[in-house]
Protein backbone atom coordinates (compact mmCIF):
# COMPACT_ATOMS: atom_id res chain seq x y z
CA UNK A 1 0.00 0.00 0.00
CA UNK A 2 1.34 3.45 -0.88
CA UNK A 3 1.81 6.10 1.78
CA UNK A 4 -1.07 8.16 0.33
CA UNK A 5 -3.47 5.23 0.22
CA UNK A 6 -2.45 4.29 3.73
CA UNK A 7 -3.12 7.81 4.98
CA UNK A 8 -6.54 7.87 3.28
CA UNK A 9 -7.43 4.52 4.82
CA UNK A 10 -6.33 5.86 8.19
CA UNK A 11 -8.58 8.90 7.80
CA UNK A 12 -11.49 6.67 6.80
CA UNK A 13 -10.98 4.51 9.85
CA UNK A 14 -10.78 7.66 11.95
CA UNK A 15 -14.14 8.84 10.64
CA UNK A 16 -15.70 5.47 11.40
CA UNK A 17 -14.14 5.49 14.86
CA UNK A 18 -15.74 8.86 15.55
CA UNK A 19 -19.15 7.16 15.47
CA UNK A 20 -18.11 4.67 18.15
CA UNK A 21 -15.67 6.71 20.25
CA UNK A 22 -15.65 4.83 23.57
CA UNK A 23 -17.30 6.34 26.63
CA UNK A 24 -17.48 4.98 30.18
CA UNK A 25 -20.38 2.60 30.60
CA UNK A 26 -21.30 4.58 33.74
CA UNK A 27 -22.18 7.49 31.45
CA UNK A 28 -24.56 5.35 29.47
CA UNK A 29 -26.12 4.03 32.68
CA UNK A 30 -26.70 7.56 33.94
CA UNK A 31 -28.20 8.61 30.61
CA UNK A 32 -30.50 5.59 30.74
CA UNK A 33 -31.74 6.66 34.15
CA UNK A 34 -32.44 10.13 32.82
CA UNK A 35 -34.29 9.03 29.69
CA UNK A 36 -36.27 6.25 31.36
CA UNK A 37 -37.23 8.49 34.28
CA UNK A 38 -38.49 11.04 31.74
CA UNK A 39 -40.85 8.63 29.99
CA UNK A 40 -43.61 8.87 32.65
CA UNK A 41 -43.72 12.60 31.90
CA UNK A 42 -44.23 11.72 28.25
CA UNK A 43 -47.15 9.35 28.74
CA UNK A 44 -48.80 11.31 31.58
CA UNK A 45 -48.28 14.87 30.35
CA UNK A 46 -46.37 15.74 27.18
CA UNK A 47 -47.88 13.07 24.91
CA UNK A 48 -50.82 12.08 27.09
CA UNK A 49 -53.05 12.26 24.02
CA UNK A 50 -53.25 8.51 23.38
CA UNK A 51 -56.15 7.77 25.73
CA UNK A 52 -58.17 10.83 24.54
CA UNK A 53 -57.43 9.76 20.95
CA UNK A 54 -59.32 6.53 21.57
CA UNK A 55 -62.54 8.60 21.69
CA UNK A 56 -62.05 9.77 18.09
CA UNK A 57 -60.88 6.71 16.11
CA UNK A 58 -62.47 8.23 12.97
CA UNK A 59 -59.71 10.83 12.96
CA UNK A 60 -56.83 8.32 13.03
CA UNK A 61 -54.33 9.16 10.26
CA UNK A 62 -51.39 6.83 10.92
CA UNK A 63 -47.91 7.74 9.73
CA UNK A 64 -45.88 5.44 7.49
CA UNK A 65 -44.44 3.14 10.15
CA UNK A 66 -47.81 2.71 11.87
CA UNK A 67 -49.33 1.78 8.50
CA UNK A 68 -46.46 -0.57 7.73
CA UNK A 69 -47.02 -2.55 10.94
CA UNK A 70 -50.81 -2.14 10.59
CA UNK A 71 -51.16 -0.47 13.97
CA UNK A 72 -54.88 0.11 14.52
CA UNK A 73 -56.44 2.95 16.54
CA UNK A 74 -56.50 1.95 20.20
CA UNK A 75 -59.59 1.46 22.36
CA UNK A 76 -59.79 3.21 25.72
CA UNK A 77 -59.06 -0.09 27.49
CA UNK A 78 -56.02 -0.93 25.38
CA UNK A 79 -54.63 2.61 25.59
CA UNK A 80 -55.02 2.61 29.37
CA UNK A 81 -53.38 -0.81 29.66
CA UNK A 82 -50.54 0.38 27.43
CA UNK A 83 -50.00 3.40 29.65
CA UNK A 84 -49.77 1.20 32.74
CA UNK A 85 -47.47 -1.23 30.95
CA UNK A 86 -45.09 1.59 30.03
CA UNK A 87 -45.06 2.90 33.59
CA UNK A 88 -44.36 -0.59 34.95
CA UNK A 89 -41.58 -1.10 32.40
CA UNK A 90 -40.04 2.23 33.37
CA UNK A 91 -39.80 0.98 36.96
CA UNK A 92 -38.32 -2.31 35.73
CA UNK A 93 -35.81 -0.59 33.44
CA UNK A 94 -34.70 1.80 36.18
CA UNK A 95 -34.31 -1.10 38.60
CA UNK A 96 -32.32 -2.99 35.96
CA UNK A 97 -29.81 -0.13 35.78
CA UNK A 98 -29.26 -0.24 39.54
CA UNK A 99 -29.18 -4.03 39.70
CA UNK A 100 -27.03 -4.49 36.61
CA UNK A 101 -29.32 -7.18 35.22
CA UNK A 102 -31.91 -7.60 32.45
CA UNK A 103 -31.11 -4.21 30.98
CA UNK A 104 -31.44 -5.30 27.38
CA UNK A 105 -34.76 -7.08 27.98
CA UNK A 106 -36.38 -4.26 29.92
CA UNK A 107 -34.93 -1.70 27.52
CA UNK A 108 -36.33 -3.37 24.41
CA UNK A 109 -39.76 -3.96 25.96
CA UNK A 110 -39.94 -0.35 27.06
CA UNK A 111 -38.81 0.84 23.65
CA UNK A 112 -41.43 -1.29 21.87
CA UNK A 113 -44.32 -0.12 24.03
CA UNK A 114 -43.17 3.49 23.88
CA UNK A 115 -43.01 3.29 20.07
CA UNK A 116 -46.62 2.06 19.94
CA UNK A 117 -47.62 4.91 22.24
CA UNK A 118 -45.84 7.52 20.18
CA UNK A 119 -47.04 6.22 16.81
CA UNK A 120 -50.59 6.61 18.07
CA UNK A 121 -49.87 9.99 19.59
CA UNK A 122 -48.49 11.28 16.28
CA UNK A 123 -51.16 9.55 14.22
CA UNK A 124 -53.96 12.12 14.30
CA UNK A 125 -52.82 14.76 11.86
CA UNK A 126 -50.08 16.47 13.81
CA UNK A 127 -46.46 15.37 14.19
CA UNK A 128 -44.31 17.32 16.62
CA UNK A 129 -40.64 17.39 15.78
CA UNK A 130 -39.28 17.61 19.30
CA UNK A 131 -39.24 13.82 19.61
CA UNK A 132 -36.60 12.83 17.07
CA UNK A 133 -33.80 12.52 19.65
CA UNK A 134 -36.03 10.89 22.27
CA UNK A 135 -37.18 8.18 19.85
CA UNK A 136 -33.57 7.55 18.85
CA UNK A 137 -32.56 7.39 22.52
CA UNK A 138 -35.10 4.78 23.60
CA UNK A 139 -34.23 2.72 20.52
CA UNK A 140 -30.45 2.71 20.79
CA UNK A 141 -30.07 2.51 24.57
CA UNK A 142 -30.80 -1.23 24.82
CA UNK A 143 -28.15 -2.02 22.19
CA UNK A 144 -25.33 -1.19 24.59
CA UNK A 145 -26.02 -4.09 26.94
CA UNK A 146 -25.31 -4.01 30.65
CA UNK A 147 -24.02 -0.74 32.10
CA UNK A 148 -23.90 0.25 35.75
CA UNK A 149 -23.23 3.55 37.46
CA UNK A 150 -19.95 2.27 38.89
CA UNK A 151 -18.52 0.80 35.70
CA UNK A 152 -15.88 3.11 34.24
CA UNK A 153 -14.92 0.69 31.48
CA UNK A 154 -14.87 2.49 28.13
CA UNK A 155 -17.23 0.94 25.62
CA UNK A 156 -17.66 1.50 21.91
CA UNK A 157 -21.23 0.18 22.10
CA UNK A 158 -22.05 2.81 24.72
CA UNK A 159 -20.22 5.41 22.64
CA UNK A 160 -22.27 4.59 19.54
CA UNK A 161 -25.56 4.82 21.45
CA UNK A 162 -24.75 8.24 22.86
CA UNK A 163 -23.32 9.43 19.52
CA UNK A 164 -26.62 8.51 17.84
CA UNK A 165 -28.52 10.62 20.35
CA UNK A 166 -26.09 13.50 19.86
CA UNK A 167 -26.54 13.33 16.09
CA UNK A 168 -30.32 13.24 16.49
CA UNK A 169 -30.21 16.28 18.76
CA UNK A 170 -28.20 18.43 16.34
CA UNK A 171 -30.18 17.08 13.37
CA UNK A 172 -33.35 18.38 15.02
CA UNK A 173 -32.03 21.93 14.68
CA UNK A 174 -29.99 21.67 11.50
CA UNK A 175 -32.76 19.80 9.66
CA UNK A 176 -35.21 22.47 10.75
CA UNK A 177 -32.96 25.19 9.31
CA UNK A 178 -32.65 23.24 6.05
CA UNK A 179 -36.42 22.84 5.81
CA UNK A 180 -36.99 26.54 6.49
CA UNK A 181 -34.56 27.37 3.69
CA UNK A 182 -36.17 24.90 1.30
CA UNK A 183 -39.67 26.18 1.99
CA UNK A 184 -38.76 29.85 1.82
CA UNK A 185 -36.26 29.63 -1.05
CA UNK A 186 -33.42 31.15 0.98
CA UNK A 187 -32.47 31.62 4.65
CA UNK A 188 -33.16 35.35 4.37
CA UNK A 189 -36.65 34.79 3.00
CA UNK A 190 -37.57 32.89 6.15
CA UNK A 191 -35.71 35.09 8.60
CA UNK A 192 -37.23 38.29 7.18
CA UNK A 193 -40.76 36.93 7.18
CA UNK A 194 -43.45 37.23 9.86
CA UNK A 195 -43.19 33.77 11.43
CA UNK A 196 -42.77 35.03 14.99
CA UNK A 197 -45.67 37.47 14.53
CA UNK A 198 -47.79 34.55 13.37
CA UNK A 199 -46.67 32.34 16.28
CA UNK A 200 -47.23 35.00 18.93
CA UNK A 201 -50.64 35.92 17.53
CA UNK A 202 -51.73 32.30 17.64
CA UNK A 203 -50.36 31.28 21.00
CA UNK A 204 -48.23 34.05 22.47
CA UNK A 205 -48.29 34.62 26.23
CA UNK A 206 -48.91 38.03 27.80
CA UNK A 207 -45.18 38.12 28.45
CA UNK A 208 -44.38 38.59 24.76
CA UNK A 209 -47.46 40.06 23.10
CA UNK A 210 -45.91 43.52 23.34
CA UNK A 211 -43.33 42.42 20.76
CA UNK A 212 -46.06 42.50 18.10
CA UNK A 213 -45.55 46.25 18.17
CA UNK A 214 -41.84 45.83 17.46
CA UNK A 215 -41.64 43.67 14.31
CA UNK A 216 -37.95 44.50 13.82
CA UNK A 217 -37.10 42.82 17.13
CA UNK A 218 -38.95 39.69 16.03
CA UNK A 219 -37.05 39.65 12.75
CA UNK A 220 -33.76 39.88 14.62
CA UNK A 221 -34.90 36.95 16.73
CA UNK A 222 -35.67 34.95 13.60
CA UNK A 223 -32.16 35.59 12.26
CA UNK A 224 -30.71 34.50 15.60
CA UNK A 225 -32.74 31.30 15.65
CA UNK A 226 -31.77 30.39 12.11
CA UNK A 227 -28.10 31.07 12.87
CA UNK A 228 -27.93 28.76 15.87
CA UNK A 229 -29.90 26.08 14.02
CA UNK A 230 -27.43 26.09 11.13
CA UNK A 231 -24.52 26.10 13.59
CA UNK A 232 -25.87 23.19 15.65
CA UNK A 233 -23.68 20.45 14.06
CA UNK A 234 -20.58 22.25 15.37
CA UNK A 235 -21.64 21.19 18.85
CA UNK A 236 -20.55 17.65 17.97
CA UNK A 237 -16.95 18.85 18.01
CA UNK A 238 -17.05 21.41 20.83
CA UNK A 239 -15.26 20.70 24.06
CA UNK A 240 -15.23 21.98 27.63
CA UNK A 241 -16.73 25.37 28.38
CA UNK A 242 -17.67 26.01 24.73
CA UNK A 243 -19.76 22.88 24.78
CA UNK A 244 -21.47 23.91 27.98
CA UNK A 245 -22.08 27.38 26.55
CA UNK A 246 -23.67 25.87 23.44
CA UNK A 247 -25.91 23.57 25.49
CA UNK A 248 -26.93 26.49 27.70
CA UNK A 249 -27.73 28.56 24.60
CA UNK A 250 -30.04 25.96 23.11
CA UNK A 251 -31.70 25.14 26.43
CA UNK A 252 -32.07 28.88 27.10
CA UNK A 253 -33.79 29.23 23.73
CA UNK A 254 -36.26 26.52 24.72
CA UNK A 255 -36.89 28.24 28.05
CA UNK A 256 -37.69 31.40 26.11
CA UNK A 257 -40.09 29.67 23.73
CA UNK A 258 -41.78 28.03 26.70
CA UNK A 259 -42.34 31.39 28.34
CA UNK A 260 -43.39 32.99 25.05
CA UNK A 261 -45.42 30.28 23.34
CA UNK A 262 -45.80 27.41 25.79
CA UNK A 263 -43.54 25.22 23.61
CA UNK A 264 -40.96 23.53 25.83
CA UNK A 265 -39.18 20.95 23.66
CA UNK A 266 -38.40 18.99 26.82
CA UNK A 267 -37.78 15.63 25.07
CA UNK A 268 -34.95 17.25 23.10
CA UNK A 269 -33.71 19.20 26.11
CA UNK A 270 -33.35 15.95 28.08
CA UNK A 271 -31.37 14.41 25.23
CA UNK A 272 -28.83 17.25 25.38
CA UNK A 273 -27.54 15.31 28.39
CA UNK A 274 -25.99 12.85 25.91
CA UNK A 275 -23.23 15.45 25.49
CA UNK A 276 -22.42 15.59 29.20
CA UNK A 277 -19.94 13.54 31.27
CA UNK A 278 -22.78 12.18 33.37
CA UNK A 279 -20.54 9.63 35.10
CA UNK A 280 -18.99 12.56 36.97
CA UNK A 281 -22.03 12.93 39.19
CA UNK A 282 -20.28 10.68 41.67
CA UNK A 283 -17.31 13.03 41.93
CA UNK A 284 -19.68 15.81 42.94
CA UNK A 285 -20.66 13.99 46.13
CA UNK A 286 -20.37 16.12 49.26
CA UNK A 287 -17.07 15.32 50.92
CA UNK A 288 -15.49 13.87 47.84
CA UNK A 289 -13.05 16.75 47.93
CA UNK A 290 -13.20 17.23 44.18
CA UNK A 291 -15.66 19.38 42.31
CA UNK A 292 -13.81 19.11 39.03
CA UNK A 293 -13.09 16.01 37.08
CA UNK A 294 -10.01 15.79 34.94
CA UNK A 295 -9.19 13.00 32.57
CA UNK A 296 -6.04 11.12 33.37
CA UNK A 297 -3.79 9.43 30.88
CA UNK A 298 -5.60 6.18 31.49
CA UNK A 299 -9.10 7.70 31.65
CA UNK A 300 -11.37 6.53 28.86
CA UNK A 301 -11.80 9.41 26.50
CA UNK A 302 -15.17 11.08 26.67
CA UNK A 303 -17.27 12.03 23.66
CA UNK A 304 -17.93 15.69 23.39
CA UNK A 305 -16.10 16.72 26.53
CA UNK A 306 -12.54 15.57 26.81
CA UNK A 307 -11.62 14.40 23.36
CA UNK A 308 -12.91 12.51 20.37
CA UNK A 309 -10.15 10.20 19.32
CA UNK A 310 -10.23 6.68 20.67
CA UNK A 311 -7.33 5.64 22.85
CA UNK A 312 -4.72 3.40 21.33
CA UNK A 313 -5.43 0.60 23.73
CA UNK A 314 -5.39 -3.07 23.00
CA UNK A 315 -8.73 -4.71 22.37
CA UNK A 316 -10.64 -5.41 25.53
CA UNK A 317 -10.89 -9.13 26.35
CA UNK A 318 -14.71 -8.92 26.30
CA UNK A 319 -14.82 -7.34 22.86
CA UNK A 320 -17.46 -8.68 20.52
CA UNK A 321 -19.43 -10.43 23.23
CA UNK A 322 -23.05 -9.49 23.55
CA UNK A 323 -23.74 -8.60 27.10
CA UNK A 324 -27.13 -8.20 28.64
Amino acid sequence: MSVTAGAAAGRGAGVLQWFVAPVPRARLAAFRLLVYAFIPLEVLWIRASVIPHSYVPELYRPTWLARAVQLPPLSVGVATALQWAILALVVAALAAVFLGRLQRTTGWLLAATFWVWMLNSMGFGYVSHDHLAMMVAVTVLPTAGVATLHDRTASEAAGWALRCVQIAVVATYFGSAVLKTLRAGSPAAWANSAVFVWAIMRRGSDLVRWTLEVPLLLRVGQWGLLAIEFAAPAVLWLRGRWLYLAIATFCGFHLLTFAALGIHFLPTVVCWAAFLPLERWRTLDVGSGSQHWRPTDSEPLAQGVTGGEPPAHPVHPRAGRDRG
Binding site: V127, H129, G175, V178, S193, V195, V197
Partner: peptide
Protein backbone atom coordinates in the same frame (compact mmCIF):
# COMPACT_ATOMS: atom_id res chain seq x y z
CA UNK B 1 -41.28 17.86 2.99
CA UNK B 2 -43.23 15.07 4.60
CA UNK B 3 -43.68 14.16 8.24
CA UNK B 4 -45.02 10.76 7.27
CA UNK B 5 -41.75 9.10 8.29
CA UNK B 6 -42.04 9.98 11.98
CA UNK B 7 -39.69 10.31 13.79
CA UNK B 8 -37.53 10.90 10.72
CA UNK B 9 -39.95 13.27 9.03
CA UNK B 10 -39.68 16.91 8.08
CA UNK B 11 -38.71 19.21 10.92
CA UNK B 12 -41.43 21.59 9.92
CA UNK B 13 -42.53 23.36 13.08
CA UNK B 14 -42.62 27.06 12.17
CA UNK B 15 -40.86 26.11 8.95
CA UNK B 16 -43.07 28.01 6.53
CA UNK B 17 -42.21 31.68 5.97
CA UNK B 18 -45.01 34.16 6.62
CA UNK B 19 -45.56 37.21 4.47
CA UNK B 20 -45.10 40.48 6.37
CA UNK B 21 -48.07 41.77 4.37
CA UNK B 22 -49.95 38.51 4.40
CA UNK B 23 -52.41 37.15 6.94
CA UNK B 24 -52.41 35.08 10.11
Amino acid sequence: DTDDYFPLGSLSQYGAPKDLNGSV
